[in-house]
Amino acid sequence: MIINHPLLGPRDSSEFVYLGDARLLNRPDWQADNALEQFIDYGHTRENPAGLHRELWYHEQGDRSWLVVTRNTVTHEITQVELARDVARTGGRSK
């Protein structure tokens, strides 16, 4: 596969390491009342869509950026690639 890196352009997927569902960006608040349940859900509950899937890839043999890649699990078509750091910021993870 080819991942169109937001900074570097198209790069071969062999340069990347796959992690999984991009919901890992949404780490729960450890002080929430039901923190344990939230963390179990965060760590283990996954959708398994036949279609678009937002997932985390790490450009280990590249600029070492984490990316959020939107990939169609049926066709492997990649429709969007974002820097995970930007997504995390947008998602309110700034300190």
Binding site: V17, L19, L25, L56, Y58, E60, W66, D86, K95
Partner: peptide, 19 residues
């Protein structure tokens, strides 16, 4: 070593992007 480095980058970029 490799796995830990990857993990640290994950925490840095994805969990605390503005540290």
């Amino acid at each position: 070593a490799v796995e830990v480095y990857r993990h640290l980058e994950f925490v840095r970029q994805c969990l605390c992007p503005d540290k």
